[in-house]
Simulated scan of single mutants.
Amino acid sequence: MDEDLRERLRTAAASHRPDRARMLARIERGMAEEPPVRPTRAPRSPMPWLRVAGATAAVCGVLTAGAFAVTSAGREEPRAGQRVAAGPTSHRPESPPPGRGAALPAGSGPLWSDGSLNPNGNAYWAQSEVTVKTTRPLSELTVELRIALNGGVHTTGSWRSLPEKDFVASATEEDGFLVYRWTLRPGRGVPTGTHTFAGQYNHAEGSRDTGRDDYTARGRATDGQTSVGGDFAETH
């Protein structure tokens, strides 16, 4: 169907105005012209209600034809290869993917670790902490915390959450670092769980750069040796 024909159909459909009054008058005349029933004659055919129904159908037909003409004239046929858009359909939203937690620090085998600064430090003193989590008992463990000797660093002590008698602890200066080291004594063990090792130190007034500070933890479980390590991103 070309565009000119569509336009003529639209114009004709838009200008069409059914004469409802005239149609109703035709229905009334048909009812009024009903001749009286004579008993001696056979029933008339068609019956009066059929004529009324026919006239009513004609009215509906005219109205329907007008509506169809408007609809047809306004619809474009899809071109070859063109998709006809369908109406929106209801669908069930997909479940969101499982939430991901924060990225875990260094982990290897049964060990997981994290290095952080204790928030209770001040402008002259700080505490660096190494948190070690093991999912299996350890028969060997050595934790080493290295604090760069910048900003007047000087040790003020250390501690660990595991029993003191189970470890050999030391704090020494090595190659420009203050090194805290905790070594599990032979015959002792580290149970599954989360354990903390902390080194304390004074430093010059103000914030201290921790960019060179780091730590390592090396242990042995029933399935062999394992190790983790990391650094301290914050400054204090």
Score class of each variant (00 low, 15 high):
G152I: 05
D214S: 13
G121H: 09
A85G: 04
A42R: 15
T64Q: 09
S108Y: 04
V84I: 03
T134H: 04
G81R: 04
R29C: 07
R146K: 10
R51Y: 05
T131G: 06
F177E: 04
R146Y: 08
L145G: 01
H91D: 13
D166I: 05
G193W: 15
F177K: 00
P98H: 11
L9G: 02
P48N: 10
D4G: 04
G30V: 12
P46K: 06
D4C: 04
P43T: 07
A126Q: 00
G99M: 09
G30I: 13
I147R: 07
E144K: 10
A171T: 05
Q225K: 12
T142H: 14
V153F: 00
V168D: 12
L5D: 10
S227H: 07
D4P: 01
E3K: 06
D213A: 00
M23A: 06
R38L: 13
H91L: 14
T155S: 14
L104S: 09
S128D: 06
Y124D: 02
L145E: 08
S227C: 05
G74P: 00
A123V: 02
L138N: 00
G61I: 12
I147K: 03
P163R: 09
A102T: 12
R20F: 08
P43K: 12
L184V: 02
T64H: 11
A53M: 08
F68W: 10
R29P: 01
T40I: 10
G81L: 04
L149E: 00
F167G: 04
W159P: 03
T183I: 11
G189E: 11
V132N: 01
M1C: 01
T71G: 06
R29Q: 07
A103D: 14
F167N: 02
R75S: 11
L104M: 14
D2E: 00
P18I: 05
